[in-house]
Design a protein around this nucleic acid. Sequence first.
DNA 1: TTGACAACATACCGAGTAGTATGTTCATTA
DNA 2: TAATGAACATACTACTCGGTATGTTGTCAA
Lengths: 216, 216
Amino acid sequence: MTQMPGSEAFAAGDARFKILMAAAACFEKRGYASTSIDDVARKLNATKGRIYHHFPSKTDLFAAVYKHGMDMLYTRLEPIRALDLPPLQKLHALAKEHTRMMIGTKAFQRVVWEGVEMHLRGSTTPEQREALDELLNERHRYSAIFRAETEAAKAEGLLSYDNISIANQMMFIALNSPIFWYTPRVEETEADREAIARQVVTFALRGLGAKEGDFR
Amino acid sequence: MTQMPGSEAFAAGDARFKILMAAAACFEKRGYASTSIDDVARKLNATKGRIYHHFPSKTDLFAAVYKHGMDMLYTRLEPIRALDLPPLQKLHALAKEHTRMMIGTKAFQRVVWEGVEMHLRGSTTPEQREALDELLNERHRYSAIFRAETEAAKAEGLLSYDNISIANQMMFIALNSPIFWYTPRVEETEADREAIARQVVTFALRGLGAKEGDFR
DNA sequence: TTGACAACATACCGAGTAGTATGTTCATTA
DNA sequence: TAATGAACATACTACTCGGTATGTTGTCAA
């Protein structure tokens, strides 16, 4: 089919990626429903044709952005998950990296949020459901990683909460919250972002009942 | 103009209110952009004419739902605000009632959330901006109530956090979180909802650095 | 040189939707 | 009882937008 799989795949992947970036920015700004394919094309100084050449539908484009966001999360979290650490330390490390990703890949993570929301509200068309259902399972597996460490830490008496489902929901919403209020400032350094992430994670772990000395 | 201001105003208000309820439910389910006026009308077993007779535009309908949600919040929070309590106790009482409202008037509060989001994203048309700008100020005043008590409690050494803006954002997101995950179950009692609110508020105040004994 | 194909752009169609203009019904009032 | 207006329903318009069909251009292999 292709003459040179490597470079051709890269070139095609690069073209796809540029579209993904533009789409993520548009979806972040207006949301899925209010973003038109023409909007995304305009952002690329291009026309619809370019997008529909690489993605069969608006739903698939959205799903691809969602998937890329989730893939980036997994890529960064998996090494930490594999570490041999006490539950609360591991939970802290996972939460910190998760929060860094919310800040560093905000546009994509916001699309992930909206994708989950669309699913929860059941406001999806059949095609959208088919495209998102598998991705939602990936999301559940991701969430399960945190839940396992949370329950283990509670078993050690280092956390305290009534309902694990509610606790998990609140922890994620707290960790995800930068996608709603974070905006990079001029002259902002990596240390600034790190300080933000630290405050976010501290809030979330304290919320779960952790003592500061136990995870820092 | 009217023969009997009282009852006629009530009747008109009642007709408007029914539309507000249906609109809140639709906006909650699909979001603003994906909700058509026909959807709202269908929910009322009616047609567009009924809605456009009471509201000049979709934007105004949305703004009215938003305003009603904020008004309900203010009505319940103002008496607590007027109480003579130590900052942390007052913050706790405010947070608890706020959370109860998130659970009890979820559809309206979700519209409030989306309204704030639309404003933050700047994804509003000029008309929408005009209709929402004043309402957003109301939202800021509401937020300021919590911020004042938070800073006062911190001054007493009962809270600890780095940045007040981030702390305020995270507290609100935590308290608001039921609008994303709460769904009433069958056979659910008032005590169940109270337990949920308690866990939410505990998470938020502990996140801000409060010791459990200081607010419960 | 010449197909052949990838990577787009252009032109168009059909469905859905906000908003309007106009009809209809019914209760109230002069 | 005739007129009036509130409270809708009906019918229509103008426009947006997802998707498709087709045209165009550059590149590369034979």
